[in-house]
């Protein structure tokens, strides 16, 4: 049983870490793009902004359980199967991208416009303003955004586990629900809480260390 619990915890971590990283790869640029293309932004593009915003809102309003089922064909195409933690990464990532993009948007647009202006006065290109001003200045807020995404994904991953995604959620359903082993259920819940706590504390600590204001 202990081996199984360790195995399931590792699977959960693997799913959540992988989908957090993957969603950051897409969500970060999307969030920045939302800020740049906004009215009064550095590169105003109303149409692009409207479309991106719409897609993000759509993704945000879709319940995860529906999204998971809706992307099954895409998952099969990408991973070859719809069972297991590798397959669960696909819906988890897709679900997290719009969530993270909004958090990134809010973090980046909180940067003091005076700093952007100072960089413009130095003759900075838009890319330099993003790389040298917007991202570094919002780093603490970005770390907090990633932490929130990670924690949310742990909850989602348990849901994915329930439909064959592996990990702690899967274990809890199989032993706790189907085999009435309440103690396994309790242990998995405790493990989930511990994982959330550890990563939340870690994220908070990193964010605080990066914050020089």
């Amino acid at each position: 049983m202990t081996a199984e619990l360790i195995q399931a915890t590792l699977e959960t971590l693997q799913m959540v870490v992988a989908s957090t990283v993957l969603s950051a790869i897409v969500g970060l640029p999307v969030g920045v793009l939302l800020v740049l293309s906004a009215r009064g932004g550095l590169r105003p593009a109303p149409v692009l902004n409207r479309i991106l915003g719409l897609i993000v809102n759509l993704g945000r309003s879709l319940p995860f359980i529906i999204l998971m089922i809706a992307v099954i064909p895409f998952t099969r195409l990408l991973v070859g199967t719809t069972i297991g933690s590798a397959a669960a990464i696909v819906p988890l990532t897709i679900g997290a991208i719009p969530f993270l993009a909004r958090l990134v948007e809010s973090a980046v647009s909180d940067v003091d416009p005076g700093l952007v202006e100072a960089a413009q006065a130095m003759g900075a290109r838009t890319g330099q303003i993003v790389g040298k001003v917007l991202l570094p200045e919002s780093r603490p807020a970005l770390v907090r955004a990633l932490t929130v995404t990670f924690v949310t994904l742990i909850g989602y991953s348990a849901m994915a586990g329930a439909v064959g995604g592996g990990g702690l959620g899967d274990l809890a359903i199989r032993y706790g629900y189907q085999l009435f082993q309440t103690n396994v259920m309790v242990v998995t819940v405790v493990l989930l809480v511990v994982v959330v706590q550890v990563f939340q504390l870690l994220g908070d600590r990193i964010a605080r260390r990066l914050d020089r204001r």
Partner: peptide, 10 residues
């Protein structure tokens, strides 16, 4: 500038 506009991260 009046409010200096220095990067707090640097």
């Amino acid at each position: 500038f009046q409010h200096f506009n220095l990067l707090s991260s640097r």
